[in-house]
Design a protein around this nucleic acid. Structure first.
Lengths: 345, 345
DNA sequence: AACTTTATTGAAAGCGATAACATAATCGGC
DNA sequence: GCCGATTATGTTATCGCTTTCAATAAAGTT
C-alpha cells in the first residue's frame, strides 16, 4: 500500500495525494477529505525511508553519549545526565523529531561521523564527561551541525556550537552567600579539577563572595568532581586541624564524600559543619542529613539545546547563546555555625 | 557522491561496488581493494535511507519509554530503569542496530504504531511502569515484533512477546532466608500492589521461606512500590506495637521509606530492626545505614531482550524464555536481632 | 465578454541504494 | 586444448516518495 495505490483508489495523481500528506495548500476541500478518508480506511502511512531519500532530510537528531573510560557504566548511574537525556528525547519528540541514541567511546569519533555521512541524522548532540574538542572539530570540518552538553567548556569554535551555559560564577557566589548569611565566617571550598572551566568559575564565585563579605578565604582543597575528593579534603583538614565551620563543595558528589568523612569522624552535619553542594542530583535527598545544594536547571538547558539543534538542522546558521543560573535549595546540611557543642573544640 | 560515482571512478558497475560494500563474495581481490581505496579516498558512505528503502529493513530498534501519569518525570530519576535503557542502547549498537528512543504516554499507542507503520523501525521494546497490555495487543495485531521490559507481568499472548523474567519467588525466598539465617524469628513484609504479579510472587517467596524455616508469618502490610508505603507500614506497626525485628521490603523504595520512618521514631537500623530491600537501585548505597538488598541483574536482562528483538526483527518466530535470579547483597541494614539494647523492649 | 489572476491538478524525472537475471572470465581435469 | 564448473562482473527494473514544470479550471476585473 503506497502512495500510488492511494492515488489510484482516489482517482487522482500521486502529487495530489502527496499534497494532502504534507498538509499543503492548493487542494480542494472535497478532494482532500476524499483522499484522507481513503488513507485512513486503508491505514496508509507514508514510508519514512522513501521520504528521507527524496527530501534529503531525516527529521532525526543524534544523541551521542560518550563513555567515560574511567567509569564503567555510561549514563546509567549518573545522576546528573540521566534527566538531561530523558528531557532531550522528549523535547525532540515534541518538535516532531526522532532521536537516535548511541553510546560511543572518546577515542573513536568515526561511529559518530558515520551517522552524519550516511545521512542517518540531520544534527547531533554530544553528552560527555571527557574532552571532546577533537571530535567536535572533526564534525565541524565536515560541516555538520553539532551541539554539546557538558560542564567542561569548549573554548574553541564555540560560536558555531550550541552549548547551554550555566553561570557558574554567579551560582557559586549565591551558594557561598548562603553560607555567609547563616553566620559562617570560616568557609572552605573543595574545588573540582583545575582543567575544568566550570570548576574554576565556581571557585571564582566563592572567592568573590568571600571578598564581598569582607571575609578571608577559608581552606582550599584542589580535588576532582568525585566523592573521593570530598573525603580526602575533609580528612586532610581534620588532620591539619583546619576544618572550617562550613564547606562549599563544588558539586554534590564531593559533598557526599565530605559527608561520609565527617560522619566517620563523628562530626555532626550541620551542627558542627555545614555542607553545601552543587548540581542538585537525586541522592542529595537521600543522604542523612539531606544536602543543601544549588539546583542546576538541566531540564531547561537540555530543552534549549534541542531547540537550537533543530533550528540548525533546518538551516539556521546562528547560535543563540542563553545563560542559566542555578538556584538555592536549602536542605538539612546547612545551618548556622556551632549550634550545639557535642564534642571538643 | 553516490554509488554511481564510485562505480564510474573505479571503472566498474554499481553492482560490483555494491558487492564490496556489503562485504560479499565474488569480487576479485584487486578489484575490491581498488574500489575500497576509491571509496575511502572520496569519503564515500552509502546513504542509509536509500538502502532502507531498497532493503525494506531499517536495522533500527524502537525503544518506547512509557510515561507514568503518576510520575512527573520519565525515567530520568528512576534508578531502576535508567541502567536498563543505557544497556539496551549499547547492546543494540554492539549488534549493529540503531536505537530510536521515544517517550510516550500510556493512553495513546498511536505514536508507537506510527513508527512501525511508516517503517522507521524493525522491532520495538516497551519500558513501562503501567499496564500496557492494550498497546502490546495492537502492535501484535499488526504483526510487528515487540518486547517488554516490565516488572508487571503480561499474562496474555506472552508466547509471542519476549519479556525477560525474574524469578521473583526464588529471589524473595533467598532474601527472607538471609534474614532468618541472621537469627530473626519475627519477620514482617511490606508488599507491593496486589495487582502486580511480581509483588505477589515476592510475597509467596517470603511466605514459603518462613514456612520452610518453621516460622510463623510476621506482620504483613499491603502497600505499593513507593516510599510512602514503607513509611506507612512502619508507622502503623509501631502504633499497633507489632513492629517485627526484621522487615522484608518488596523493593528498595519501600525500604527507603521504612528507614525514614524508623529513624523518625529513633529506632536504630540494624540494631533494633533489620531492613532488607529488593532491586539494588543506586540510592541503597547512599542511605545511612546502607541498605541490604537483592540485586536484580537488569543489565543482563536488558541485553537478553535486545538480542531477542533483533532475532525477531530478522525473521525468527520463536521466543527463547530465559529466567533470571536476583542475588543477595549484604550491606549495613541487616544484622542479627537485638544486638544492643538502647531503648525499651 | 475578453483577459488576468489564482487555485487545483498531473506527468515524469529524480533520490541512492538493492537484486533478479544474464553474461563474461577463469580454472581444473583429462 | 576442449568442456563444464566456478568465479567475476554488468544491465536494469524497483523501492516509495518528492519535486520541477506545465496544464487546466475557477474566479475576479473592467
Amino acid at each position: 500500500m503506497d502512495i500510488k495505490d492511494i492515488a489510484k483508489l482516489a482517482g487522482v495523481s500521486t502529487k495530489t495525494v502527496q499534497r494532502v500528506l504534507n498538509d499543503s495548500q492548493h487542494v480542494k476541500k472535497e478532494t482532500r477529505e476524499h483522499i484522507q478518508h481513503i488513507m485512513s480506511e486503508h491505514n496508509y502511512y507514508p514510508n519514512v525511508s522513501a521520504r528521507r531519500l527524496a527530501k534529503k532530510k531525516t527529521q532525526t537528531l543524534g544523541l551521542f553519549i560518550v563513555q567515560d573510560p574511567k567509569k564503567d557504566n555510561i549514563y546509567a548511574d549518573d545522576f546528573f545526565y540521566s534527566s538531561v537525556i530523558s528531557q532531550m528525547i522528549t523535547s525532540a519528540g515534541d518538535r516532531g523529531y526522532k532521536m537516535l541514541v548511541t553510546t560511543t567511546s572518546v577515542e573513536d569519533a568515526s561511529p559518530i561521523l558515520k551517522l552524519y555521512r550516511e545521512k542517518s541524522i540531520d544534527a547531533g548532540m554530544i553528552i560527555s564527561w571527557s574532552d571532546i574538542q577533537e571530535t567536535v572539530d572533526k564534525i565541524l570540518d565536515y560541516g555538520y551541525p553539532v551541539g554539546v552538553f557538558d560542564q567542561n567548556n569548549l573554548p574553541e569554535r564555540m560560536e558555531k556550537v550550541p552549548v547551554p551555559e550555566l553561570l557558574n560564577k554567579e551560582s557559586a557566589f549565591e551558594a557561598t552567600r548562603h553560607l555567609i548569611s547563616l553566620g559562617h565566617q570560616l568557609i572552605g571550598i573543595i574545588a573540582g579539577e583545575a582543567t575544568n572551566q566550570a570548576a574554576l568559575e565556581r571557585l571564582e564565585g566563592y572567592t568573590s563572595a568571600m571578598a564581598r563579605a569582607g571575609l578571608e578565604a577559608g581552606p582550599y582543597y584542589h580535588g576532582t568532581f568525585v566523592e573521593a575528593s570530598g573525603e580526602e579534603a575533609v580528612r586532610s583538614w581534620i588532620s591539619e586541624e583546619t576544618l572550617p565551620t562550613a564547606i562549599f563543595c563544588s558539586n554534590d558528589e564531593i559533598a557526599v564524600g565530605a559527608l561520609k568523612a565527617l560522619k566517620q569522624h563523628d562530626i555532626s552535619v550541620p551542627d558542627q559543619v555545614s555542607l553545601m553542594g552543587f548540581d542538585n542530583i537525586k541522592i542529595t535527598e537521600y543522604t542523612t542529613p539531606t544536602l543543601s545544594t544549588m539546583h542546576v536547571p538541566r531540564v531547561e538547558m537540555a530543552d534549549h539545546l534541542v531547540e537550537q539543534m533543530i533550528s540548525q538542522a533546518e538551516g539556521s546558521e546562528s547560535v543563540k547563546k542563553k545563560y542559566f543560573t542555578a538556584s538555592l535549595i536549602e536542605r538539612g546540611s546547612t545551618a548556622g555555625p556551632r549550634r550545639k557543642k557535642d564534642s571538643s573544640d
